[in-house]
Design a protein around this nucleic acid. Sequence first.
DNA 1: CTGCCCAACTTGTATATACAACTTAAAATG
DNA 2: CATTTTAAGTTGTATATACAAGTTGGGCAG
Lengths: 249, 249
Amino acid sequence: MEYQQSSQNTPLYQQVKDYINNRIAQGILISGMRIESEAELSKMLNASRMTVNRALRELTAEGKLRRVQGLGTFVAEQKLQSPLFEIRSLAKEIEERGGRYSCDVHLLREEEASPWLAGEMKIQVLSPVFHSIIVHKEDGLPIQLGCRYINPEIAPDYLNQDYTRITPSDYLIQQAPVTAVEHVVEALIAEQWIRELLLIDSFEPCLVLHRKTWSGEQVATVNTFYYPGTRYTLGGRFVPDDRGKLDIV
Amino acid sequence: MEYQQSSQNTPLYQQVKDYINNRIAQGILISGMRIESEAELSKMLNASRMTVNRALRELTAEGKLRRVQGLGTFVAEQKLQSPLFEIRSLAKEIEERGGRYSCDVHLLREEEASPWLAGEMKIQVLSPVFHSIIVHKEDGLPIQLGCRYINPEIAPDYLNQDYTRITPSDYLIQQAPVTAVEHVVEALIAEQWIRELLLIDSFEPCLVLHRKTWSGEQVATVNTFYYPGTRYTLGGRFVPDDRGKLDIV
DNA sequence: CTGCCCAACTTGTATATACAACTTAAAATG
DNA sequence: CATTTTAAGTTGTATATACAAGTTGGGCAG
């Protein structure tokens, strides 16, 4: 067989990568599922095995696939770990420390988007958004107040979950893949109602983490998390590995 | 020519990658320098061009090399951008905003390591360390107080630099490659001498960023940065790209 | 039935070849 | 001399082939 590239100008190996990526994005391929072998893909997509091999090898380096010699190629469990702050459940973190996790749901309802929120989420003013305010506690002591606004298109059933059983983070991650995250940190003296819920006095500073997530082109969530400055710090250690990616240690 | 892998069990393409990586680590290859062409490396290392191509392609994906079709392969400018907080010069950031940068060096001297610091840096108690306290200002207003402890082995000439001309970050980055970073953020009411230098009152919270860097196995620096809570926020947006790496937008 | 071996399939690596696309400098042309 | 063309060298992609190495299940011998 001779040299072929044909389509569009996009390299063939890239077309194979796109094909796999699309099937993952569309939910046709689920985490853990075995995908076609190189030989099968080679026939299906009319590309040589080496070209398919390159595509799958690169997708593996990108963390999207997992390959086992002699067995096959599988869809990796996708976990978007945003750099400094991995989006992980606070509950799990507390349990790892040996603490007892609990939470209070102070608000969980549908609201109409304010002009500010509409701008942030790129939706129409007064269009419906879901709003929740939840206080997470370790051994009964509040350590985070999470104020979340959720795009209903991303998680239509957000209001009908029991957040004493599954954290909002955990629920949202399984609803839609997060494709981008923005984090901003600041320090301030919180408003009174926040101080009361976090059990801090008027002179104790709050660490505030603003997190905005996207799913594709849509803004998925706009969150503000308040931490008592004296009871909580945020951080992580980052070591670039051989593949140029970052491990959270 | 037939199939050969021979050495050790490490794949040939990996040996090529190691060869390049080592020459970069040893300083034989400097940023921007052109390295041998695939054909030359192929002869030198007795590997086929395709094998060399794979090695260089992967190193490029890892950000270590930069390739230009028709021109050659070059050593990429190495910038360890830690995720959330890229280690970049505050000065550049201010200038990008159109502000005027200036700084005051309040302390720059050699000290003996306290027990706490010795533990952090994994050095002997009372062994020499460099200590600097510098206030960075935008349009004359303080926005960061940087308190740094530097391992003298990493940057022996740290005390003899003019930090009104080059920021400590810029200087340290060119002294030794940073191989790991740890960041921890907290919010607190700062001590009085810090509040005075940052021109904040006793009720205004400080955003505190602790940064610890490693160069290989050695702890290179231990830093604490104080930001006025009302005048500064830390943050970034992260979008995983096709190569699985993270762009700071 | 049990245990072993082997065949079939998988991914992993290495190579030779071919051509495309791009860059630069030298050579040819006016 | 100025301009264009060409040639040589570079990386980028695609393929066919070959063998190594790991996994699994079925068949065979005991």
